[in-house]
Write a protein that binds this DNA or RNA. Structure first.
Ligand SMILES: Nc1ncnc2c1ncn2[C@@H]1O[C@H](COP(=O)(O)OP(=O)(O)OP(=O)(O)O)[C@@H](O)[C@H]1O
Length: 830
DNA sequence: TCTTCAAACTTTTTT
DNA sequence: AGTTTGAAGA
């Protein structure tokens, strides 16, 4: 086979791809092909006979991992790629720990078991709130979120609770130290890890256990890391341990071990969670023999966009100068749009997107600084009927019903998970109230055991009345029964069984509202996810499933192929590229964010974020800002972002002066009616070019010097009470009256629900014909059936989840199981 | 024990 | 403005 995979690479890239010895760093600007180099390098290694089993590739997000995987599969085929470890630091650590956590001991000699669970932000916060209660501290003073991030910061610097507590110099820090200690203790009792633990425990495990270290040292002889500028201390330590196996550098066989890290200091945007680009800068002091390659050709953006990015980032002081040349044409000027408020901004974006034509929707991304900004944009896209998908925001796995079912699975998998137990002990309603739960919890804390352990011997404790005892025991036996059963079920069937046997599904069905219907559909989707996971090769299905669910932030894009505009934060956009980009909310106070305006290094990080944003664009870049924006129910006025003034005027076109004086159009209307008016207006005029009329002038804004802006901009972000509060309130009450008997859900939420419903219906309707008419073979309760795997049984009951049907069948050999009708695995016995 | 309504809080970014 | 939380009532 000729080296077609090397074709088209420039000299420096080629060098980086083919360099097959020792340590290599690739330092290069945005769009210079760093990720492409990594991918090609892996392919090249395989070509050279290196076993996929020996390769570890670390990406920054799960999305990036998936992307890299699928690119590799195209070159190398699935069979080879499945042996390569490609993933985020967290998922890789999760995988290592699932195998070897039992070899780890913490400073107090506490160990974790293989069936540990991973706590997300919410569950970690629950533990912290609990610790506050135990210490009798006020959660107004000790804000759980702040404490969580203090603890997290400490952990990422590899500082443990003991060290933290000893180093505490004031009362507040001392208390945090105490919370930290209890927090860690609770996690261990629950046999649980938080996100940070995944990293630091793996590091400590590799430090402690020579056997484990050697195992992974031997395995991962070729390591590649993308986005290295955003690694933190623990992650760096992990890479060092894996690469050197703790042997002195001189002892490492650099002819057979390689390490390649790539990054761009100007794109370091995660310092707030412990990432430090200095690790990349100082890399050579740890590895003096490392070779460095610079890539200076940008293959992504047209010259105008690249020049704007370069000019903006030049304002940073903490950086190393570098060159980046465009390989594309000049391109169109950057379109800068000044809107009156966030609603108009959103409609401008939606409308401009529409003008690019429906076939381009997939080429468009709208980026914003904070998630809250997405709402107005969503509303505009919905009003204009433009399909969109949102990355981040409210995630699938964060929905209540999904968290509930996951909590059941977690408790069944690891009965020491008291956070899960507390979540579902009274869901669905079992008349086990707060008071009872509190008692159980207190007993567990006094005896240093998990809450489920208390349930196991509930009659030993005299605190509970007879009725309560029965209810608790029923719940306990239900869970014990699930624990017994879990081996005998396919994952998706197990999930279904839980939903049926607990009565969770029934409770939702009885509620019979739009909302409950959507919940049921979501559960159906979750069952589908479980079913998909059944295909994965794994030794511990439930455990690995739970890990995946905890670490992968969203159900992976079913919508990926579909033609929709993408909405996401600037942070999530890292590493991606789109032909058309909208950067929205370019206002002082939003971007750069208010909270960073006083600190230089944080301001520089915001500027790097701007650099990342600009460089996502290939062909067209739109920048928008609003003169005022509704926040917390009030209008807030702000100046355009200083970053706009850092882009040379000759690269931009703007509507700046043409909109002035139109303010009264909005002055008398409430937010909602403003949206409505705009929607109607733009719908009517949708065939007329709107934005074009206002462009064509060069940017005429007075060139304000940065000093001026930063010195007085803070004072200019004043808050003005909204003009028509009176009307607002009236409208709201009359609306409530009208909807008295319905659920009152906000517009976006309602539309979201409907969209989801439609989606669910669509999925199901496309599934049915393919699987071959299960309508023709429906059964009744009491029918005797034969199953291809489980043999003969009798239909016990029939349940509908979403649009699919499940039979609960009592099998002669295997007992009761849930069988999905869609698979057609049952045959009627006459 | 569960429901209802008013008050308080929210907005930085994510694995 | 929307969402979550807490206290009082059923
Ligand atoms: N030699 C090349 N010839 C043509 N296109 C290239 C070449 N190298 C890279 N590209 C293209 O340039 C784009 C950017 O590449 P890539 O995403 O690898 O850059 P990057 O340096 O990782 O960017 P970022 O720093 O923003 O993550 C991709 O579309 C890629 O296919």
């Amino acid at each position: 086979m000729t080296n077609s995979l090397l074709e088209g690479l420039n000299n420096e890239q080629l060098q980086a791809v083919t360099d097959a010895q020792g340590i290599l760093t690739v330092l290069a600007g945005a769009g210079s092909g760093k990720t492409k180099v990594l991918t090609s390098r892996i392919a090249q290694m395989i070509e050279n006979g290196i076993s996929p089993y020996n390769i570890l590739a670390v990406t920054f997000t799960n999305k990036a991992a998936k992307e890299m995987r699928s690119r590799l599969e195209k070159i190398l085929g699935e069979e080879i790629v499945k042996h390569i470890w490609v993933g985020t630091f967290h998922s890789i650590c999760g995988r290592i720990l699932r195998q070897d956590i039992e070899k780890y001991k913490n400073e107090e000699g506490i160990k974790w078991e293989k069936n540990f669970v991973i706590y997300d932000e919410d569950e970690s916060l629950a533990i912290i709130k609990n610790a506050l209660k135990i210490l009798d501290l006020d959660d107004k003073v000790y804000k759980p979120k702040t404490i969580k991030s203090e603890i997290s910061n400490a952990k990422n610097k590899l500082i443990n609770a003991y060290t933290f507590a000893t180093k505490a110099r004031d009362y507040y820090k001392d208390k945090i130290g105490q919370i930290f200690t209890i927090y860690e203790k609770s996690l261990s009792i629950n046999n649980a890890l938080d996100f940070d633990d995944l990293l630091i425990m793996t590091v400590k495990l590799l430090e402690q256990s020579a056997e484990t270290r050697e195992k992974y040292y031997q395995k991962f002889s070729h390591i590649l890391v993308d986005e290295f500028q955003d690694t933190n201390k623990a992650q760096y330590q992990l890479i060092k341990l894996l690469f050197t196996g703790n042997y002195p550098l001189e002892a490492i066989d650099l002819d057979n071990r390689t390490l390649c890290v790539v990054g761009d200091i100007d794109q370091s945007i995660y310092s707030w969670r412990g990432a430090d680009y200095k690790i990349l800068l100082n890399f050579r002091s740890d590895f003096p023999m490392a070779k460095t390659i610079k890539l200076e050709k940008n293959y992504r953006s047209v010259a105008t966009i690249l020049e704007a990015a370069n000019k903006v980032i030049e304002n940073n002081f903490e950086r190393v100068e570098k060159n980046l040349y465009s390989t594309k044409g000049q391109g169109r000027k950057i379109q800068c749009y000044e809107a009156q408020d966030q609603a108009e901004e959103a409609f401008y974006i939606a409308n401009t997107a529409k003008k690019y034509g429906a076939e381009h929707y997939q080429n468009i991304a709208v980026l914003y600084r904070t998630n809250a900004q997405s709402r107005a944009i969503e509303e505009a896209f919905m009003a204009l009927g433009i399909p969109y998908r949102m990355i981040g925001g409210l995630k699938f796995y964060e929905r209540k019903e999904i968290k509930d079912i996951i909590a059941y699975l977690r408790l069944i998998y690891n009965r020491n998970d008291s956070v899960a137990l507390k979540r579902i002990i009274n869901v669905p309603k079992r008349a086990i109230g707060q008071a009872t739960v509190k008692k159980i919890e207190e007993i567990s804390q006094e005896n240093n055991i998990s809450m489920f352990d208390v349930l196991l011997e509930i009659r030993k404790y005299s605190e509970f009345s007879g009725v309560t005892l029965t209810k608790i025991e029923t719940f306990r036996d239900l869970i014990l029964d699930f624990i017994d059963k879990k081996e005998h079920f396919l994952l998706s069937e197990f999930v279904t069984t839980i939903l049926m046997d607990t009565g969770y599904l029934k409770e939702l069905e009885d509620e019979d509202s739009i909302e409950s219907q959507v919940r049921i559909d979501n559960l159906q989707e979750f069952i589908n996810v479980a079913r998909e996971f059944e295909e994965t090769e794994t030794e511990d299905e439930l455990g690995d499933f739970l890990s995946q669910v905890a670490l992968v932030s969203d159900v992976d894009e079913i919508t990926e192929g579909s033609n929709a505009v993408t909405l996401m934060t600037l942070h999530s956009a890292k590493g991606l590229e789109y032909p058309i980009i909208f950067l929205s909310g370019l206002e002082e106070g939003i971007f750069p964010h208010q909270r960073v305006q006083n600190s230089n290094s944080e301001l520089e990080e915001e500027r790097r974020l701007m650099y990342v944003g600009i460089t996502r664009a290939q062909e067209h870049l739109h920048i928008t800002y609003a003169k005022r924006r509704q926040m917390w129910g009030e209008y807030r006025y702000s100046e355009p972002s200083r970053f706009i003034f850092e882009i040379p005027q000759n690269l931009m076109e703007t509507n700046f002066s043409s909109k002035i004086g139109k303010e009264e159009h909005f002055a008398n209307s409430t937010f909602k009616t403003a949206v409505k008016n705009l929607g109607e207006k733009y719908n009517i005029e949708k065939d007329k070019p709107i934005a074009n009329t206002s462009f064509g002038k060069n940017f005429v804004a007075p060139s304000i010097k940065e000093k001026q802006i930063s010195s007085n901009s803070f004072g200019k972000n004043f808050v003005v009470p909204s003009t028509k509060k009176q009307i607002d309130k009236e409208e709201k009450t009359s609306f409530k009256k009208k909807e008295e008997f319905k659920n009152v859900i906000s517009g976006v939420e309602q539309a979201r629900l409907m969209a989801q419903k439609l989606k669910a219906q669509k999925t199901n309707s496309t599934c049915t014909p393919i699987k071959g008419g299960f309508h023709s073979t429906s059964f009744g309760v009491g029918d005797r059936v034969n199953h291809e795997k489980y043999g003969i049984g009798k239909i016990e009951s029939i349940v509908n989840i979403g649009n699919s049907t499940l039979y609960k069948v009592e099998f002669e050999k295997y007992g009761i199981k849930a069988i999905d009708a869609e698979f057609n695995r049952l045959k009627l016995i006459q």
